[in-house]
Amino acid sequence: MEIVAYGVLADEQPLLQAEFERVLADRHDLRCLGIFLNRDTVPTAAGHEIVLSSVNDTLDAEVLRALAAGGTRMIAQRATGYNNIDLTVARELGLAVARVSYYSPYSVAEFAWTLALAVNRRIVRAAHRTREFDFRLDGLMGRDLRGRTAGVVGTGKIGAAFARIAHGFGMRLLGWDIAENPDCLALGMEYVEREQLFAEADLVSLHVPLLPETHHLLDAKALGLMKSDAILVNSSRGGLVDTDALLETLRAGRLSGVGLDVYEEEAGVFFLDKSLEVMTDERLARLMTFSNVLITSHQAYFTEDAVGQIARTTVANVADYLSGRTGDDVLVPPPAG
């Protein structure tokens, strides 16, 4: 049987293929495609019982129905998030769905800190200047982090890793989550209401999943509570931040720095080369004009360690499906019988 994978990145493919060959190559073939799975490309999945999806694929009701009609019976998402998959429709169609529930939290936490430090110390502006042999320091002043307050929104594995790094900097820790993490409490973290966290933190970093109740968690009201010289970092999901409200905040001269590895309308843009096209997303283009905003293309997870772990879990999920097992990564189990 041939299994098809969508949205496979060049650096990801060798790791995915190596793991597939180690576990399943004696019985099945893997076909890796760089294109994303959506309404236009779903016909290419016809005849494939198993599809390996990426976080930027669009698996809405229309695509899922087309997959089921073409013979697909199992979707293995190569990511932790699954807000791009209509699980209700998948269940109705009898499509099994699995995801990668865990991979190296340090990849994202360390990258979130990369963004925070870069905007705090104006690294991008400084690098552009020195490439032009301009060695002035005007406009490059940052702030010490020691003694300042880090607000960690979401204190699961990634948030806790972020908090440990903040603790290493000597920062006061504020946290918000539906449940307190004992590891964070051991670091001295104080759990508070969101409003207090936004109001007191010098650095706010987002580490919660995108759910209906967290959509636009950072709206105009929340942004208005933040200190005018605070730093905001989002390495989780773009939909956590109301982009229009963020633009208004930046236009008002508030926030000393913003680091975004995700964007709420990133589908169809991130992971693609748009350098020869006109950028039609006016909000993204406007964000790019602010010198204190640093945007990267959803790469926080992109380390050899994390991507390798994602490949191992994805292949294990496929092997479980083929063997009739249901593991902890299953979101929608195969139909009984």
Rank of each mutant, 00 (worst) to 15 (best):
V124Q: 13
L210S: 12
F198V: 02
N120F: 05
R131M: 11
A222Y: 06
A166N: 02
I165F: 02
D144A: 12
V124A: 14
G188Q: 08
E195V: 07
L185S: 12
V124N: 03
L203H: 01
L217H: 07
R129T: 03
L185F: 04
G151N: 05
V124S: 09
A220T: 08
I158H: 02
V208T: 15
V204C: 03
V204K: 01
R143K: 14
V204Q: 01
E193F: 06
L211C: 08
R146F: 02
G156D: 02
M189S: 04
M189F: 08
L223V: 10
A127F: 02
I158M: 13
L218A: 15
C184R: 01
T130A: 11
C184E: 03
E180A: 14
L140R: 12
T130I: 15
H207Q: 04
E190C: 08
T149S: 02
A220F: 13
L210N: 09
G175K: 07
D202G: 04
G142Y: 08
L217V: 04
D183N: 10
Q196R: 15
F135H: 11
I178H: 12
A150Q: 01
S205G: 08
I165L: 13
R146D: 01
L217Q: 06
D219Q: 09
D177Q: 08
E132V: 01
H128C: 09
T214P: 07
V192D: 09
F198G: 03
R122Q: 12
R136P: 00
E200H: 11
I178L: 15
E180S: 07
H215V: 04
E132F: 02
E193C: 09
I158Y: 03
F133M: 10
V124P: 00
D138A: 14
T214H: 11
R129N: 14
G139A: 07
M171P: 01
T155W: 00
H216A: 13
G188L: 08
F162T: 10
K221E: 15
A186P: 10
L203S: 00
G159K: 02
A126P: 07
T130V: 15
H167R: 11
T155H: 03
R121L: 13
H216T: 10
V153I: 13
F169P: 00
F162K: 00
D134A: 11
L223D: 06
G154A: 08
V124L: 14
L174C: 09
D219K: 10
A127Q: 11
V204H: 03
E213A: 15
L185W: 06
E132D: 13
R122N: 12
G224I: 11
G224R: 11
L206T: 06
L203R: 00
I123A: 13
V152K: 01
I158P: 00
I165M: 13
N120W: 09
H216S: 11
R164H: 14
R194A: 14
D177K: 09
F133Y: 12
A199L: 07
R194I: 12
L218P: 00
D144H: 10
